[in-house]
Write a protein that binds this DNA or RNA. Structure first.
Length: 405
DNA sequence: GCTACTGCTTGGATTACGTCA
DNA sequence: TATGACGTAATCCAAGCAGTA
């Protein structure tokens, strides 16, 4: 993609002066020129990271995982096709905006965080006090016998058994111990309260979704996972966004839940994580759009002023034209200065991803093609077409491209 | 202060459907 | 091609919470 901004007659696109804006290292190469241009107010700084990694054809959940892949284990079964967003200069795969590194992603906080906006709260934050540790020293609340619990509810011994299935599943986070204790105590309490409640604590709503009660009536009462259980699942979710059957069974055993419950929890967790990330991305793109709108407005105003200036004083614009271009290969923005008098601003967009597009460097300001818009983000294709783009192929006369090749 | 009601949010569970081995 | 496992998306709905009268 090439973003070009030229002042003057851009038919002479050959440059005598260039600066480059690198996506990844803005202050590295030719940063002096960059700052120089910035001082002159010529820098169009669009902080969109560009990722040329194509998204997985399955599931479409990679965008939510990009920023989390770094913490994924190597043995993760997920299809983490998005590596670092480094651009291969010879890669002609479709460019894709990688928004995530610039977006503050909420960090899962198991502890209560009611002061967070709801849109940024994690799903585990039910903030409910139904299982609150009121007056029992932080211990899990006593609950009635939970029909969601496996009949073979295990105590600490089984849970912590090195021979258990869970031993093959990474459980080295700090909650492990406490959860084991919690489960152990919880089980005890459950069985105790089955015979007689210790009072004061609300009993967990027994749940067997789609299970049948004694009368064969389909009941859909739901349990609410306790904070400890949720935190435990959250920790597991940090490790693995998906579970293989072994891990599922192990987790279910650890938490004394049915494997189906663990499975559903992870399904919901993935879905809601993706939803949250989509909201964040949407918000970020909205801000980008606003910035671009404002920039566009400013440029148009500048254009009008320059045109008016030329009309009133034709000798005023005997200035070299400046062209800003972004190399699609290395994502540097280059400015070229040509000796021209035409007070014309041209913004061009060039992509190497389109082989069909002809080489066009226009001296008009209005050509916009969808080819210049990354296909990876659908709604970018429907963005306001106020920003003039022109699609061209590789230009052999492009100073930077010729240098790169 | 207590209670009942209402609207909203959360999150567990279900269902439908797509993908892949 | 049929099938089962597993994923996502959409949805349902019980439960909790806050505001109000």
């Amino acid at each position: 993609m090439e973003l070009g901004l030229s002042l003057g007659d851009n038919t002479k696109s050959a440059s005598s002066k260039s600066f480059f804006l690198s996506k990844n290292n803005i202050t590295n190469t030719s940063s002096d020129d960059y700052h120089h241009q910035k001082k002159n107010g010529l820098v169009f700084c669009m902080a969109l990271g560009i990722n040329n990694s194509s998204s997985s054809g399955r599931g479409g959940v990679q965008e939510e995982q990009n920023n989390e892949n770094q913490e994924e284990n190597d043995d993760d079964d997920e299809e983490n096709t998005s590596e670092e967003g480094n651009i291969n200069c010879t890669n002609n795969t479709p460019v894709q905006l990688d928004l995530l590194p610039l977006v503050p992603v909420p960090v899962p906080v198991p502890a209560p965080h009611r002061n967070l906006p709801q849109s940024l709260r994690w799903s585990s934050d039910n903030g409910s006090s139904e299982n609150g540790s009121s007056g029992n020293g932080g211990l899990p609340v006593a609950r009635g016998f939970d029909v969601n619990r496996l009949p073979a509810a295990t105590g600490m011994e089984e849970v912590s058994s090195p021979n258990s299935v869970a031993s093959s599943f990474r459980m080295d986070f700090g909650l492990f111990k406490s959860c084991v204790n919690i489960i152990g105590v919880g089980n005890k309490r459950n069985f105790e309260s089955a015979g007689g409640s210790d009072g004061g604590e609300p009993e967990r709503a027994s749940s067997r979704a789609s299970d049948e009660d004694e009368n064969g009536v389909n009941t859909r009462k739901k349990l609410r996972l306790s904070k400890e259980e949720s935190a435990y699942l959250e920790e597991s979710f940090k490790e693995h966004h998906t579970l293989n059957p072994k891990q599922k069974v192990a987790l279910a055993k650890q938490l004394n839940l049915r494997p189906r419950q663990v499975e559903v929890w992870f399904q919901n967790r993935r879905a809601r994580t993706k939803l949250k990330q989509t909201e964040v991305d949407c918000e970020y793109l909205k801000r980008c759009c606003e910035t671009l709108t404002e920039e566009n407005r400013r440029l148009h105003k500048e254009l009008q002023e320059l045109r008016a200036l030329k009309t009133s004083n034709p000798f005023y614009m005997q200035l070299p034209a400046t062209t800003l271009t972004m190399c699609p290969s290395c994502e540097r923005v280059a400015s070229t200065t040509t000796s021209t008098a035409a007070p014309l601003i041209t913004v061009t967009g060039t992509t190497t991803n389109t082989s069909k597009a002809p080489t066009t460097t226009t001296n008009t300001t209005t050509t916009t093609t969808s080819d210049s818009i990354p296909k990876g983000i659908p709604f970018l294709n429907s963005r306001p077409r106020f920003f003039p783009f022109t699609t061209t192929t590789n230009n052999p006369n492009h100073p930077h491209q010729s240098a790169a090749s």
